[in-house]
């Protein structure tokens, strides 16, 4: 057991500041364990959003020493012995209190996405898909909606363009629908016009912070951008697609 120094941002939308806490840390602990200990002993009303404590639900997103992370999957032993640990809420979203932010904007964006529209079932009632064809969307469907990718996205974080771009999480959701073998909906026009696919400039910061290691940029966003380019900027292919309505 060793004592560690934590600096935790405490406050509300009206303002706040870092508060220091000294706390004992046991072997094997993750940052969320330490926050819980601080909550139980030193700051009973500390607001933390968390659920599963196993990296499966994506609730405990925050910025730890400047890096967007899940507190439940950040082990204490990766920090140097004397290193102070600073914890603050995600910057891209409005603070509710302490480490909890208002992420409702993401849910609002999700509602705008044209839903899954499956082709009719074949006569025997059984949909058939090959594993290799579903592998691609299964990668996107691993997303636990922690919104860390939204938090680091330059378009949302630095340029504050929530009005123009839905962000990496929703691009991945769009990709999971667009590349679904059974889906028949066409979301390419909306990708360009409503969801702002052109605004992503492929810095791959989102991919770097994804706790599920989804290749957000390379496997999701870039192929979607290519679909937009093919449709709008390649007239011959565009015509062919119009005629054959291929996705």
């Amino acid at each position: 057991m060793s004592e560690r120094l934590f600096r935790i941002w405490r406050g509300t939308a009206a303002g706040g500041s870092f508060v220091e806490y000294r706390v004992d840390v046991d072997p094997g602990m993750v940052v969320l364990d330490v926050l819980h200990r601080i909550q139980a002993r030193l700051a009973n009303d500390l607001a933390i959003r968390w659920n599963c404590k196993a990296g499966k639900c994506g609730s405990c997103s925050m910025e730890i020493n400047g890096r967007p992370r899940l507190a439940c999957m950040t082990r204490m032993n990766q920090f140097g012995g004397a290193e102070m640990i600073a914890v603050q809420p995600m910057k891209t979203f409005p603070v509710v209190k302490d480490l909890v932010t208002d992420v409702s904007w993401n849910y609002e964006q999700n509602r705008r996405i044209p839903p899954f529209r499956p082709k009719p079932r074949p006569a025997d009632g059984q949909y058939r898909m090959r594993q290799v064809d579903v592998d691609r969307v299964q990668e996107f469907r691993k997303c636990i909606e922690c919104f860390l990718c939204q938090d680091v996205c330059h378009v949302l974080r630095d340029q504050s363009r929530k009005d123009a771009f839905v962000g990496p999480r929703l691009m991945i959701r769009l990709a999971s629908l667009e590349m679904h073998p059974l889906d028949t909906e066409d979301r390419v026009p909306a990708l360009r016009e409503e969801f702002g696919s052109g605004l992503c400039n492929i810095t791959r910061c989102c991919t770097e912070v994804c706790p599920e290691q989804i290749q957000i940029t390379d496997n999701g966003i870039i192929p979607l951008k290519e679909r937009v380019v093919d449709r709008y900027f390649d007239p011959l292919l565009g015509l062919v697609r119009k005629v054959f309505r291929r996705k």
């Binding site: 499956p118 058939r128 898909m129 579903v134 969307v137 629908l177």
Partner: peptide, 18 residues
Amino acid sequence: VRELEEWGAVFDRTTEGL
């Protein structure tokens, strides 16, 4: 389970695609 598939769930497949 089949209803979930109709709503977009993507289960792992058998070699026959089921």
